[in-house]
């Protein structure tokens, strides 16, 4: 299938940010891209854009955390949660890491939906010939 421009736009915007982060965490960039796609609605979340919060992290009171830049958000995530994700090479272990943060406990299908998003990232990276 042809590359959907919405996916191309997402990969163009986020791969330059996520690829170095994945290298620092010695993990597969597709797990991180899936997390951004899921929590930032494939880059369409205008509210998260203002907050530079691409991972959907919250603070007390349930409000999303605010970062001055995307890089600040990436540095925060990398420093705070490195122990859960460093060297992870399988989706199963990545989800286990998310559960240790913990990412979501109240919605039983959250991780099923996350898995679908990961599969979509892999499929559309192929269709968009992302290198």
């Amino acid at each position: 299938m042809a590359c959907n421009p919405n996916f191309q736009e997402f990969f163009d915007a986020y791969i330059p940010l996520i690829r170095p982060m994945a290298r620092n965490l010695a993990t597969n960039e597709d797990f991180l891209l899936a997390l951004v796609a899921f929590e930032d609605t494939w880059g369409r979340d205008e509210h998260n854009k203002l907050l530079h919060n691409i991972f959907g992290l919250t603070k007390a009171g349930g409000r999303n955390l605010h970062f001055p830049t995307y890089q600040a958000c990436i540095d925060y995530f990398t420093t705070k949660y490195k122990q859960h994700f460093y060297g992870v090479s399988t989706l199963q272990d990545w989800i286990a890491g998310m559960k240790k943060v913990p990412y979501n406990t109240v919605n039983p299908v959250y991780y099923i939906k996350f898995t679908n998003t990961y599969l979509s990232v892999v499929k559309h990276k192929g269709e968009c010939a992302v290198k």
């Binding site: 919250t58 349930g62 955390l65 943060v101």
Partner: peptide
């Protein structure tokens, strides 16, 4: 009714 504690993203309630 339950909601997730921070830092979990806020996606709904149980």
């Amino acid at each position: 009714m339950y909601v997730d504690k921070p830092p979990a993203p806020n996606h709904g309630a149980l």
